[in-house]
């Protein structure tokens, strides 16, 4: 049986096709968000099916997740990212006790019990300081691409201290640091630490390892290390970290 998971995130839309018989991912895709998310999801799904010679009716169940989950008309049901992340991460790392998910515009910290059930979760409020949006702002300010930030941070010798709790103020702070001659590498490293600190603060309580890192920001080199340093525990980046929630949605589609 083929099931599909569609994760309608704030910045990207992710689709995963899961073969429950062979217990493997058949295909996955990530695309930048558009205005018509339902149409985009349909196009991505159709393209994946075409590429793998699968008919549309081969997909027996579809679960949508992400902030735009209610917009996907093809979905049989909608499930929140919290539940889907749990399913996706547990598939890859069954022993996971903490999930840190940092996406384009939000971040979450999910605590699991020993059996893998969600104990509780916290999400960022309106502030974008602990999200990928912060990295985008920095990349723009430094005139580089977001995927180049990791390489830049790797050569930092002394990470800058970014004290502002707000992206807008932090951007002003970065302008000031650049004007004072601070190396861009140190600024990027400081921003990564700032994001990690914000996310760690959301959890508040002791973080139970193993910690698994998901979301698009997990792909940025240096972020996992920054997070591990702040949490003082090893952090594992989930395989295909950007599509973990979509995978979880597909797994849930098979379940019920």
């Amino acid at each position: 049986m083929i099931a599909a998971g569609i994760d309608v995130g704030s910045r990207t839309l992710k689709v995963v096709l899961w073969d429950s018989t062979r217990r493997r991912v058949v295909a996955s895709a990530v695309a930048d968000q558009g205005i018509d998310q339902d149409a985009l999801a349909r196009r991505m799904l159709d393209r994946l099916l075409d590429e793998h010679d699968l008919a549309r009716d081969a997909v027996r169940a579809i679960v949508a997740t992400g902030y735009g989950r209610k917009l996907i008309t093809a979905a049989d049901r909608a499930v929140t990212e919290i539940t889907c992340q749990r399913w996706g991460v547990r598939h890859h790392v069954p022993e996971a006790r903490t999930i840190v998910d940092i996406g384009g515009q939000d971040s979450k910290l999910i605590r699991l019990d020993g059996a893998g059930a969600v104990l509780d979760f916290v999400m960022n409020d309106r502030c974008a300081a602990g999200t990928g949006r912060f990295l985008e702002v920095v990349a723009t300010r430094l005139g580089t691409r977001i995927d180049a930030l990791g390489r830049l941070a790797a050569v930092s010798t002394a990470a800058a201290r970014i004290s502002s709790m707000c992206v807008v103020f932090a951007e002003t702070e970065i302008v000031g640091l650049l004007a004072s001659g601070m190396a861009p590498a140190d600024i990027v490293a400081g921003v990564q630490t700032s994001i990690a600190t914000r996310v760690a603060a959301m959890g508040g309580r002791t973080i139970e390892p193993p910690v698994v890192f998901t979301g698009g920001v997990a792909l940025v080199p240096g972020m996992a290390e920054a997070l591990a340093a702040v949490l003082e525990t090893p952090v594992t980046v989930a395989p295909d970290s950007q599509t973990t929630a979509a995978l979880g949605a597909a797994l849930l589609a098979v379940e019920k």
Partner: peptide
């Protein structure tokens, strides 16, 4: 303006409760 994020939290909370019941 905050309804989607508030809704996501409340739905996730309900999902968590129901999953705990079935565990």
């Amino acid at each position: 303006a905050m309804e989607p994020t508030i809704r996501a939290r409340l739905e996730a909370l309900v999902e968590t409760v129901l999953a705990r019941r079935n565990a």
